[in-house]
Every structure is written in C-alpha cells, then in structure tokens.
Amino acid sequence: QEPLTASMLAAAPPQEQKQMIGERLYPLIHAMHPMLAGKITGMLLEIDNSELLLLLESPDSLHSKIEEAVAVLQAHQA
C-alpha cells in the first residue's frame, strides 16, 4: 500500500476516509496488540483525520497513542 496522503483522503467521501485510514492503522496496531487491534483502531479512528495522517507518518507518536488507548480501553473494561 502506498502511503496515504491528504489529497488522496480529500478525494474520498468521509466514510471512505475513515475506512482508508483504518485499513492502514489496523496492521500497525495488530503488530503490537493482536487481541485488541480492532478495538484500538476503532478508538483511534475517533481522532480527526489530519492528526491520524500525522500519526501514520511518525511511528513513535503512533506507538505512544496506541499505548495510551490500550490503557484507556483496559480501564474501561475493568
């Protein structure tokens, strides 16, 4: 998959935009948390698309955002 760009996103309707981002986010999250990947991706997709694009381009900030979401999810499930 080639990297997702803002112009590619802008060309797609809003529902498609979240789907495009989710399809790229999911494998990255799955590599870290296979069991929680679906839920964590769902949580991160609530962030606005411009920030998500930035996260997709910076692994370190994406990793900390994923760990933050895992903590929130586990607290929520407790």
Binding site: Q15, K18, P27, I40, E46
Partner: peptide, 22 residues
C-alpha cells in the same frame, strides 16, 4: 461513553460502524 459496545471495533475489509456518530 460507558456503553458496552464502545469502542466500535474496526475489522479490515468491513465498513467501520463507528462512523458517522463520532
């Protein structure tokens, strides 16, 4: 939200149910 089905789970290849109520 404190609902049980939060967060809406994403599954590759399937439309994400979390949209449009975000």
């Amino acid at each position: 939200s404190s609902s049980v089905n939060w967060p809406p789970e994403f599954r590759p290849g399937e439309p994400w149910k979390g949209y449009p109520n975000i």
